[in-house]
């Protein structure tokens, strides 16, 4: 279980994450979605205790990450964007090192390392030096390391980046499997991945949470239109004219092909069976037989683009300070030019 309350993180005068609050209940897979620079990695770094929060609290399995760091970290498995691997060690050596770091009792270490390697299908690389592994295998080793100690919470930062399609599918299946017993937060900017794997989606933009919900909920929430794809037998012009005047129809596109017309009808949001029936009857009345009718809901991609296009910072530009009654301006701290962004 992860609880984040009013998390804010600043790098100098730049705010990377602003007033972020969310909860991930146990056993759920939560996706952090956002364009590059939205603050996903910063959020994850704060969640794992690598960075501290400028304001706010993070509670992992009931332990505050800053006040009870040891207990909280024991319940955390972290796979950063670049897995922290030591190139000069072999896979088995590295995993055994991580197991020792994570306080796995000596008697269980070998067993847990073996199980983790089998889980990520990297057992045949056990004695290979990490510097000789391919990117896909390095990700797997990183994930295996995150699994050691059987932590309750798994935090994965862009886990499938750089993998080939087959590996990506395997990885996602693995994450779904893990999600049954662990609480998982994964970040991604691949929408299909998030909608395929996650139970809950958080959309971040410019450091702020702009939407939250299941992939379907989000699509529903933000739909301002529904689209009907209709295939009719008949002339394009007649079909289009028949539908055009109907209630709730915004736009009609017609394309004719071999005597059949493909219509794309954009209706107002909340179009239900009544509208579909009206469209179908209107077409029948005009002499066009309906062969196929399909509703097209708003995809997560459209939701994403819609939500991340607008910049919350542009909504309210800061007003210039005005002089007080006594003629003096309030003290304004100018943002330091050189301090922008994370330090190297």
């Amino acid at each position: 279980m992860i609880q984040v309350e009013h998390l804010t993180r600043r790098y100098g005068s730049q705010v990377a994450v602003k007033d972020l609050s969310f909860t991930v209940p146990t056993g759920q897979i939560c996706g952090l979605l956002g364009p590059n620079g939205a603050g996903k990695t910063t959020t994850m770094n704060v969640l794992t205790g690598y960075l501290s929060a400028s304001e706010g609290r993070v509670i992992i399995s009931g332990h505050d990450i800053l006040e009870e760091p040891m207990e909280a970290r024991r319940q955390l498995g972290y796979l950063p964007e670049q897995p922290p691997l030591y190139p000069e060690m072999t896979v088995e050596e590295y995993l055994r090192f991580v197991a020792e770091l994570r306080r796995v009792p000596r008697t269980q270490r070998a067993e847990q390392v073996r199980k983790a390697m089998n889980r990520v299908a990297a057992a045949d690389m056990a004695h290979r030096l990490i510097r000789n592994l391919s990117k896909g295998y390095r990700q797997r080793v990183g994930l295996a390391a995150a699994l050691l100690g059987d932590p309750e919470v798994l935090i994965l930062d862009e886990p499938t980046v750089g993998l080939d399609p087959a590996q990506m599918i395997e990885f996602r299946a693995l994450i779904r499997q893990l999600g049954r017993k662990h609480t998982v937060i994964l970040s991604s900017h691949i929408l299909s991945e998030v909608s395929a794997v996650c139970d809950q989606v958080l959309i971040l933009s410019h450091g702020q949470l702009t939407a939250q919900g299941t992939p379907d909920q989000l699509a529903e929430q933000l739909a301002d239109r529904t689209r009907l794809q209709v295939l009719v037998l008949g002339n394009a012009e007649i079909a289009a004219r028949a539908v055009h005047g109907l209630d709730g129809v915004q736009e009609v596109h017609a394309e004719e092909e071999n005597g059949k017309t493909r219509l794309e009808i954009t209706l107002n949001a909340g179009a239900d069976q009544k509208q579909q029936a009206a469209v179908s009857l209107a077409l029948a009345a005009a002499g066009c037989a309906v062969l196929h009718m399909e509703t097209e809901a708003l995809s997560l991609e459209d939701v994403f683009l819609q939500l991340t296009e607008f910049d919350p910072q542009e909504e309210d530009p800061p007003e210039p300070p005005e002089a007080d009654e006594d003629g003096y301006e309030d003290d304004v701290v100018e943002p330091d030019e050189e301090e922008g962004g994370p330090q190297p």
């Binding site: 207990e71 970290r73 670049q82 922290p84 030591y86 991580v98 994570r102």
Partner: peptide, 14 residues
């Protein structure tokens, strides 16, 4: 440089 300090600083090690 290699970012392996992320491993050490997020492990339950002081």
């Amino acid at each position: 440089r290699a970012r392996t300090d992320q491993l050490l600083l997020t492990a339950p090690v002081g």
